[in-house]
Nucleic acid binder design. Sequence first.
DNA 1: CAATATTTTGCAATAATTTGCAAGAAAAAT
DNA 2: ATTTTTCTTGCAAATTATTGCAAAATATTG
Lengths: 249, 249
Amino acid sequence: MTKEDRFEHILTKLSVNQRVHFEELAVELNVSEDTIRRDIDILGKNGLLVKVRRGGIIPAINPLSFQERASLFPEGKERIAFKVQPHLSEAKTVFMDGGTTILAIAAAIPINAELRIITNNMALPAVLHEHEQVEIISLGGNYNRNTRTTTGAQTCLEACKYVADLYLMGACGIDHALGVTAQVAEDGEVKRAFLASSRKTIAVVTQEKIGRIDFFKVANLDAIDTIVTDLPSDDFRLNAYRFAGREIL
Amino acid sequence: MTKEDRFEHILTKLSVNQRVHFEELAVELNVSEDTIRRDIDILGKNGLLVKVRRGGIIPAINPLSFQERASLFPEGKERIAFKVQPHLSEAKTVFMDGGTTILAIAAAIPINAELRIITNNMALPAVLHEHEQVEIISLGGNYNRNTRTTTGAQTCLEACKYVADLYLMGACGIDHALGVTAQVAEDGEVKRAFLASSRKTIAVVTQEKIGRIDFFKVANLDAIDTIVTDLPSDDFRLNAYRFAGREIL
DNA sequence: CAATATTTTGCAATAATTTGCAAGAAAAAT
DNA sequence: ATTTTTCTTGCAAATTATTGCAAAATATTG
């Protein structure tokens, strides 16, 4: 009975019953409850279920996260948003930059979360309008209509004034050899500023950006602590990054 | 019976019956009324229902959004927007602050206008999304969800870095004796910063703000060059301002 | 194949959450 | 104004989670 066998059993049971309990699974799989607990923790971090007290449930029925989703399992940006949440709830101050994935993550933040978000993303405040416990600090600069972000020297200068626990970096290409790249220089400059002032950096990239090399080099791969994608965390396309020692979610 | 199971039951029942009661749910789910109370509190805080006395009800149709409110009373604001356009087309660089009237003015700017707008109004970029010849400089600072503006020391500091031909001041009370006042200090501070760095200032005020005196004093009447309202320019209610030597439109 | 790392597992101690109860506060009803 | 009902708050007991650790299992290396 390998760990993967247990995963399969858990997910199968989950899809049938909509929920699983540590206690039952421990008996069924003949391992301790602690082991099941750890399994469900891993599955949860990969967005395959939602860990709750006493067990796990299908993400779709978790009313406090993605209630409106039609499909059984989250996909794409929602799945990324899902994986990122635990990290977000640990942080107090977060840098967030541009991109629709970042917006999806913000939309998934629980309504009563307490957080300080520092951003150059002008679309973000609208998304977080109901989140009264979330303090938003907007970075000034030249507004860019395509990306809905501010960029330029002013933006970088302001970013330098803060230190964040976490930087959620969106909208970038990522390559195992050439590291992180941006399509436009201004955006890349801001990313560098954020990188320099955050304790931890998570790059959020949808699969089409994996292996993509853009014009402006932002940083080497080792500047990133964690990479979150919409692929399963053990997908072969992520092997190169895993070998590079990055945490993959 | 986990918390999530209860959530599901509550929300299902809610969708069928339009409302739920603590007492019934406590019996149905075999827990104390206090527990149900707490559950409904959580669901309420996440916007999945509205907590009321004795239970919860389905959330009302979205409370009026900012944009909707903005379009609710368009006549007056459109008139103002119309009157302001000539001044706007003369200017190269314009400060614009918060308020729905300002948004109405921005929405009325011709699509091919060439302009540089410096603003702390986070809703403005969305309105000007199609205006490719309009350069927008966003001022950073603490985001305020009610006014959709940034305020604070950072905002003022940045405002000081620019000089504008014109300042379109919105969302303020105006009184012939006490001058211009703002409802919150932070907003007032930003208004002062804009005032100090612009060659010409136009206050745009809908009629309900004429004669209104708010808490925070921004400036005396003579700091304003022009007052634009939705009243006819010869309306008697504007006499006091005309006598004070202000230009009235 | 043996020796050594690495991972996994179960256990125990400690921490955190949940729950029902009770007392006082607030809101409706009389 | 008074009574009744409903809400909120604090608290302690019970349940459930987390963490550190050592033994067992598994993988890696020479």
